[in-house]
Design a protein around this nucleic acid. Structure first.
Lengths: 193, 193
DNA sequence: ACAATAACCTGAGAT
DNA sequence: GATCTCAGGTTATTG
């Protein structure tokens, strides 16, 4: 029952599940799209939290069984301005949903995020990125709208079928690599901005 | 980073800052006012906690540097009925504030404390007292309203001017005496009622 | 299950 | 304007 289950990347990788550390420097030259979400009024309102659809959360961030621990995730600004955002990512058992809490409202303010806009999450290796676009605007990212939609649907199927199997595992995967769970506060492990 | 920093009274007193152990028994014949607080709706609501203004907390209860530890404090009923209340006194790092938690709601219920009422903390040596009065009522205690006001103002000046100097000290003062910090749970040191 | 406790977070106002 | 404080929220844990 670790309250803050910090995730430290280990080298005990098994099967890597993406593009990483191939031809480029350390890792993370290739930017791959993870998922989009059209934000709701609640996501940009006074609740100060973004609900991350469960299938996306479990597919891309963390697998249940990690103790419901929280994580401080750092997302670089997708526009490449060097700016970064740290969000607290956790699971709310009461509502059975994954959320970004601390830090989220800052992003909403800064980027003037409004209901109907789309937030887009992507990564390059272990580097995470966040970006957004106005409602009604074209995808504009690395993926066409149709493809994104297809990908989302695929995610849905995949996660719903595997969720039960995954639940209860002790192993933790974060961003496609094996991680170990510790009790140390995350602030010491992931630098805040 | 001790979570529960217990305070044990030692005899290494330096300059004592009040009236104590003069002509009466052991100590604590003279009742001196510490501070008042007009309680907010939150203080008497379902949050079950009393926010203790930082300058009062640091001036009268504990000095930062003790590790943010919690303490179980025993307050005798100011009306002298032999009744006593034990409150958990601690620091909430997230909101940077001192609070009374466990036990507080019992006092609120028993004394029918309502928003706008005033809680008054005083002491006689090491014996702590708590009392309250209805909103709009005169001071009514052992001290005239004017005197209480003056005392309060003095407290204000003292604490605001010395706060910066006090912050970061290693020494700990509790109720006017030097104390040493331990990691033992306080429940073993201060008896509950 | 529920209530009490503990901890965390943030906006607004004061300094 | 940046920092500090705190009222009022929230979730989480415990019994």
């Amino acid at each position: 029952m670790a309250l803050t289950a910090a995730a430290r990347v280990s080298n005990s990788t098994g099967g890597e599940g993406g593009v990483s550390g191939s031809g480029n420097g350390v890792c993370g030259g290739v930017r791959e799209h993870m998922f989009d979400k059209v934000v709701t009024p609640s996501d940009v309102g006074k609740l100060n939290r973004l609900v991350v659809p469960k299938h996306f959360a479990e597919a891309h961030f963390v697998v249940p069984g990690s103790g419901g621990g929280a994580a401080l995730l750092r997302f670089e600004d997708g526009r490449g301005k060097g700016k970064a955002w740290c969000f607290r990512f956790s699971y709310w058992g009461s509502s059975q949903s994954y959320v970004m809490t601390k830090g989220w409202s800052g992003f909403v303010r800064d980027r003037r995020l409004a209901a109907g806009d789309t937030v887009s999450f992507s990564r390059a290796g272990h580097r995470l990125f966040i970006d957004c676009r106005r409602r009604g605007s074209a995808s504009g990212g690395s993926m066409a709208a149709a493809a994104a939609e297809a990908s989302r649907a695929l995610d849905d199927v995949e996660t719903t079928t595997t969720r039960r199997l995954m639940a209860g595992r002790r192993r933790v995967r974060l961003f496609g690599v094996d991680v170990e769970v510790t009790d140390e506060p995350l602030d010491l492990q992931l630098g805040l901005n």
